Computed example of a mutant assay.
Amino acid sequence: MAITIPNNYDPHLSVRKTQEAIKYIRDTFQKELGKEMNLERISAPLFVEKSSGLNDNLNGVERPVSFDMAAIAGEEMEVVHSLAKWKRMALHKYGFQPGEGLYTNMNAIRRDEELDNLHSCYVDQWDWEKVITKEERTVETLKDTVRNLFKIIKHMQHEVWYKYPEAAAKLPSKVTFVTTEELLERYPDQTAKERENLIAKEHGCVFLMKIGDRLANGIPHDGRAPDYDDWALNGDILFWFEPLQCALEISSMGIRVDEKALEEQLKKAGCEERRELPYHKMLLNGELPYTIGGGIGQSRLCMLLLGRAHIGEVQASIWPQKMRETCEKHGMILL
């Protein structure tokens, strides 16, 4: 448990005014997201059957919250880590066509998360997914989508400034693209997190591309499950976050694996047994649509737009009592 305390921190808004701003940001952003990206709002599950293979394995070491159900004997249920694979299945079941997509309000529990200013055991994000053609599985499709998302976030900054000028943060005018390999070449003696901080501070906002595969130094920049993002066509949107003097990840996204990428990445990750799970069988048999998708952190976006120094200031979760006391002492009131 590590807490960063900003110098002379001022949240600008009272707790009740903050709650009002949170609702405004969430309501307005999801409408803009759906309109600008042609996404329909749909309902999504809080948990899935373990045997379906639909849960996100994240880095492969996090333990999902699991339970049994009296009505379904012999089956274990898992609270979702994310909806990365479930969304693609939903697009298939609901008959979405190329250019059409969905978004949903995703809530998850990540019990092994290390708690700090940016991380909570409770995850709230807009998960979105869109059908594309095989020919659109390109870097340019990815970049165009990132630019569109950046435009929506930038527009939200103006909206928040109009309603809460005393609290609104200022965002950069554009997003810069860089790959993890380019970043390693530029900062070979820094850790992955240090490299992210350096490049985000320089440009204000970057889309860090190609996350998951091993780099020239033999180490992946960061972990990515092998069965949803194509490691050659994915990335994170990072903003330089002045209150904490670090990069703030707002979105992890990418073009999803096709049959070839899935085979290759399962082999690299030593997870070839997943080929026998229902979801993976459908994908390998060409039964699922080609898609692009990602998640946008709801609380993270509120932090960014309101300049808040702790995620607990913009979401209700559980925190150690010592953390609550330390935060309150320095003006960070955890909900």
Rank of each mutant, 00 (worst) to 15 (best):
E328K: 14
T191C: 07
N7S: 14
Y162C: 11
E166K: 13
K267N: 07
L149E: 06
T291Y: 09
G204D: 06
F177Y: 07
D230Q: 09
L102E: 10
L171I: 12
T176D: 09
G294F: 00
L46D: 00
Q315C: 11
E20I: 13
G270I: 11
C302R: 05
E328C: 06
N217Q: 13
Q245D: 14
D213Y: 10
L335D: 13
R26Q: 15
Q125V: 05
D10V: 07
Q321L: 13
K35L: 14
S43V: 15
E196M: 04
N38A: 13
A269S: 12
I333N: 10
E259P: 02
P6M: 12
G99V: 10
A261E: 02
V15M: 14
R147Y: 07
D116Q: 01
M1N: 12
L334F: 03
K170T: 15
W319V: 08
V131Y: 07
S52Q: 03
L233C: 08
L39G: 07
T180W: 01
E181D: 12
F67Q: 08
V123A: 06
T141L: 06
N107F: 12
H330V: 02
P220R: 08
G307H: 00
I219A: 11
Q315H: 10
I109L: 13
M77R: 11
D127E: 15
G294A: 06
E287K: 14
K329N: 09
L284F: 08
Y103G: 07
M37C: 13
A192T: 10
L335P: 08
N197I: 01
E32A: 15
